[in-house]
């Protein structure tokens, strides 16, 4: 029952996004003129497109046509490449998934142990060093770190190609740029989650029963520290897509992020709406998954009772 309401809420969220995009499209003037240049398109062709993509009739009819089109994956034609917008986006997807996936691995592999170490050494020298590094990492903009890496590793040391796509050498710098920046933030979350878990009364009581520190960490601290991290991790991974828009531009990475920037510059609304809905869909889907994971991890949630 609760699962059903969650699903329903997800569908409603999606519908709200589709509607917002529709409103925005209509609010920006004649969408056909935004897609086609009227100077080199005949009036007849424009009318034909209007007909084809449902820009005729009352606004309500247009809305239903639009929702129907979206439902069938028909988002229109990209004016940058004159191809179907959906396939333009889809062909960029693997590059972005590769980048985001590797960066997420870097973030977790760096963030979890480092954050846990900082928490265990709460207030000590190691903790302060880690926190200072985290502040630096947070303050360092993506594009500055990216350009610094290019200057150092490509221009000066000539170790890695400064941009491009395909080989593992191309992947290193963008992944480091995104992964380390997010690791700086993630470390803080891990630290405070572990700190909170360490302060739990059940950890004290486990200690009083004579459990070893390692066992306590494994069985009492980690399961409790997981709960807040499960919520924050997808948000950070989601924000990697956003960071991708900058980093992909710096390193010439042919992913969705760079496509966003290019289509904003070209005002390619057809491509842009595909990206928006894709991002929205991903966020809503991950939120749903997080809810389920949370229920699995925390028996106190209502959803857990349901299962």
């Amino acid at each position: 029952m609760l699962l059903l309401t969650r699903l329903l809420r997800a569908v409603v969220s999606l519908w709200v996004i589709v509607t917002l995009v529709f409103v925005a499209l209509r609010a920006t003037g004649d969408p056909i003129l935004a897609i086609f240049n009227p100077d080199d398109t005949t009036q007849a062709a424009l009318d034909a497109y209007r007909e084809q993509w449902g820009y005729t009739g009352t606004i309500l009819q247009q809305y239903f046509t639009y929702v129907n089109n979206v439902f069938h994956g028909a988002f229109g034609i990209s004016n940058m490449s004159n191809r179907d917008a959906l396939s333009v986006v889809l062909e960029r997807l693997p590059a972005t998934l590769q980048l985001v996936g590797c960066s997420a691995v870097v973030m977790i592999v760096v963030g979890v142990p480092v954050g846990a170490l900082a928490a265990i050494d709460n207030g000590g020298r190691l903790d302060r060093t880690i926190m200072s590094l985290s502040t630096v990492g947070f303050a360092l903009p993506n594009f500055v770190l990216g350009l610094a890496l290019i200057l150092l590793l490509s221009v000066n040391l000539r170790l890695l190609p400064s941009n491009g796509y395909g080989s593992w050498q191309n992947l290193i710098m963008p992944v480091l740029t995104i992964g380390l920046a997010k690791a700086a933030i993630f470390t803080r979350f891990v630290r405070s989650a572990v700190l909170d878990a360490l302060r739990l009364s059940c950890v004290t009581s486990a200690r009083a029963r004579g459990l070893g520190e390692f066992q306590i960490f494994l069985h009492h601290v980690i399961p409790n520290a997981m709960l807040p991290l499960v919520t924050i991790t997808p948000l950070l991974v989601g924000s990697m897509i956003a960071a991708g828009s900058v980093v992909e531009s710096v390193f010439g990475w042919p992913g969705v992020g760079r496509l966003i920037v290019d289509s904003v510059a070209q005002r390619d609304l057809a491509v842009l709406q595909v990206i928006i809905m894709m991002v929205a869909f991903l966020m809503i889907a991950t939120n749903l998954i997080v809810d389920l994971a949370y229920a699995k991890l925390d028996p106190r949630t209502a959803l857990a009772h349901n299962n």
Binding site: G238, A243, I260, V261, V279, M283
Partner: peptide, 14 residues
């Protein structure tokens, strides 16, 4: 829950 830079890019495009 939505990366803000995406929102701002979208608004700029529209």
């Amino acid at each position: 829950s939505v990366p803000f830079i995406i929102v701002s890019l979208t608004l700029t495009a529209f």
